[in-house]
């Protein structure tokens, strides 16, 4: 398959940031109260992701390895601010509803994660498509969660009432607790799918190294420290014995604590 198409497919389907990698959970939960917010946040992030991916890829041979993370942050923060101005000038209603979450795109793990794991190793063209793919994947994730929450929590989609009048909206879904519940069910469904698949194939389940998005989110950005995606997640090799996702997760978090301690010891002052 053509490499560019592969990048797109990877971002939208196989490594979808929301549904598969579980990255960028903070904005996912905060802005998906309505479908339109979801799509707005998704597209804004996409634009920034494409731009920063291209820029970082173009500069990958210039940026010294030791200061690469601060350099990435500066680049991402600049693009975020630029996009923020543009939104303020040309899309004020979206700007108002996304509020403080626009500047917080800077600390969105997807962007730094892609910079570190893809853009810094590949050429501009492919990095651009990686950005498009990941961005669209994120947008699709946010929009579908937004549609779900808005439909059942408010009885509307994209602001249009579509539920019959007799429908009593489950308001809790668009409130803060609803975000947690929706996400919990989403991950549970995902676990279920993986589990069934693994059972059918009758083989040990392989843990996606970036499955526990939040933890990876914590670490990808850790300021020039020697964390990589693999070391952050704790599991480098696939678990050798058969285990359920629950067990594997438990195993992994054990490793993670150990890993953090190891890294701490290794770090130079």
């Amino acid at each position: 398959m053509n490499e560019t198409v592969k990048r797109l497919k990877c971002g939208i389907v196989t490594e979808n940031p929301t549904f598969v990698q579980m990255l960028g959970m903070c904005p996912t939960m905060a802005v998906t109260t309505s479908a339109i917010n979801g799509i707005g946040m998704g597209l804004t992030t996409t634009v920034i992701l494409i731009l920063s991916n291209m820029m970082i890829s173009a500069l990958r041979k210039v940026i010294p390895d030791k200061v690469r993370i601060p350099a990435y942050i500066v680049i991402v923060a600049s693009f975020v601010t630029i996009v923020q101005f543009l939104l303020e000038g040309f899309g004020p209603s979206l700007y108002d509803s996304l509020g403080i979450y626009i500047p917080l795109i800077v600390v969105n793990c997807i962007i730094l994660g892609r910079a570190e794991s893809y853009a810094s190793k590949n050429n501009v063209w492919l990095s651009m498509f990686d950005g498009i793919g990941m961005g669209l994947g994120f947008t699709i994730g946010l929009t579908s969660i937004g549609i779900f929450r808005e439909l059942f929590g408010n009885g509307s989609i994209f602001g249009k009432n579509i539920m019959p009048d007799s429908y009593q909206p489950v308001s809790i879904l668009i409130l803060a607790p609803g975000a947690f519940f929706v996400l919990a069910c989403l991950i549970a469904v995902q676990n279920k799918v993986k589990l069934t698949k693994a059972r059918k194939a009758g083989e040990a389940i392989s843990i996606c190294e970036r499955e526990d998005g939040c933890a990876s989110c914590t670490n990808t950005l850790c300021m020039g420290k020697s964390y990589t995606m693999e070391s952050v997640m704790g599991i480098k090799e696939k678990p050798d014995k058969k285990m359920t996702v629950g067990e594997a997760l438990k195993e992994k978090s054990k490793d993670k604590v150990k890993e953090a301690e190891d890294n701490d010891r290794e770090r130079e002052v």
């Binding site: 519940f181 991950i187 629950g246």
Partner: peptide, 24 residues
């Protein structure tokens, strides 16, 4: 005894959701 697919992150999120309700 948590349903298998809810082990790990999902149950934490559910708990957090209940806490968020309490914090209301």
């Amino acid at each position: 005894d948590i349903p298998e697919s809810f082990k790990g992150t999902p149950i934490v999120l559910l708990t957090a959701g209940l806490m968020a309700m309490a914090f209301f």
